[in-house]
């Protein structure tokens, strides 16, 4: 399991690096000492209230997106599937946009993430209503697309009707996704949802492996497809909803990471779950370090960078796949 070791080492290294980067010019030793020791001075405050939540959120959200992406691709048996497919990120974004527009976001610190979470839950409820307990994976995709489209349309409507250009501006920036200026409150808000979601998704390995042979063959091997479906929907909704609520929409991680790691785990869906969780954490930690290093003064948005990195990477993979014989 050399791959696991490399991925774990990479995650730890990037997590520590993320803690050491910031506008305050302080040495690494001093920073860590302030974080762990805690002299209650300004540096401890910076480390514990600014850098630690940022690094923790990158780790949590990255791992969530990677895991949810691998699970979604495994369930749908489609390498182009991604966690946003079921419409949860779209509905979470709609809730956040409404919170900004109505001023709820400004009235208290958890206003925005809570509105996003409630909206994500509404999206899942609608999804379950549409895709129901019966029906194939195709129904799930179609229901997801319908909800995503509806959420996107309503988000555009809010922007369209926004009488306040500042609010519209804030909405656009929020939609790009970022981890800047997040606090431990955000971590504590997202953590329970993410833990529940990770727990749901982590149990899917065996079922996803069996699904390699198709739904009918898997069902005949004693896999309860309905069970798998619910775990996947709830797990993805919990992690993606919570992630979008605190950090905005961050794309491409759930799509690209499983795709890159698949050949390295022999294409086995169960092994890919764990590898993608670590890989997602690595990609998001690295991207969040990059936005701070490349343009420290410009507040480059994380979601913009992941898309900028992800799209060419994905194109490269497509070209590579095309060169290989079927």
């Amino acid at each position: 399991m050399r791959l696991t070791a490399v991925l774990i080492m990479g995650t730890i290294t990037l997590f520590v690096t993320s803690l050491l980067i910031g506008p305050a010019a302080v040495g690494p030793g001093e920073s860590i000492a302030a974080l762990v020791g805690g002299d209650a001075g300004a540096l401890t405050l910076v480390m514990r209230e600014i850098r630690l939540p940022r690094a923790l959120l990158a780790l949590m959200i990255g791992a969530s997106l990677g895991l949810a992406g691998a699970a979604m691709q495994g369930y749908l048996r489609n390498p182009l599937a991604e966690p946003g497919l079921i419409g949860v990120s779209g509905s979470a974004a709609l809730g956040a946009v409404l919170a900004i527009q109505t001023g709820l976001a400004a009235s208290f610190v958890l206003g925005l993430p809570l509105a996003a979470l409630i909206s994500a839950l509404a999206g899942v409820a609608l999804l379950l209503l549409l895709a129901g307990p019966h029906g194939s994976s195709l129904t799930l995709i179609l229901a997801g697309i319908a909800i995503s489209a509806l959420a996107a349309a309503l988000t555009s409507l809010v922007l369209n009707l926004s009488p306040n250009p500042f609010a519209a501006n804030e909405i656009v920036f929020w939609l790009m996704g970022s981890l800047a200026d997040r606090s431990m409150t955000h971590v504590w808000l997202a953590l329970p949802f993410m833990l529940v979601g990770l727990f749901c998704l982590a149990g899917l390995g065996r079922g996803l492996d069996a699904l390699t042979l198709g739904e009918d063959a898997a069902a005949a091997m004693g896999i309860r497809l309905m069970h798998i479906r619910y775990l996947l929907i709830f797990g993805t909704a919990a992690v993606v909803g919570a992630g979008t609520a605190v950090a905005g929409a961050i794309g491409f991680v759930g799509l690209v990471v499983p795709h890159i790691l698949r050949p390295l785990v022999g294409a086995r869906p169960s092994l890919l779950l764990w590898a993608s969780a670590l890989g997602g954490a690595i990609m998001l930690l690295a991207a969040d370090i990059a936005v701070r290093v490349i343009l420290p003064s410009k507040d480059l948005k994380l979601g913009v960078l992941t898309a900028l990195l992800g799209a060419p990477l994905f194109l490269h993979l497509i070209v590579k796949t095309r060169r290989e014989p079927e």
Binding site: D209, T212, G214, A217, M221
Partner: peptide
């Protein structure tokens, strides 16, 4: 699942897993 094995007509193999891994899925 311990009494009957089922081979659907579609012969689906979704991922490029090794033959050994695929055969091993029968032990699920």
């Amino acid at each position: 699942a311990k009494t009957a094995a089922w081979m659907p007509q579609s012969r689906e193999i979704a991922w490029p897993v090794t033959v050994e891994t695929l055969v091993g899925l029968g032990r699920t």
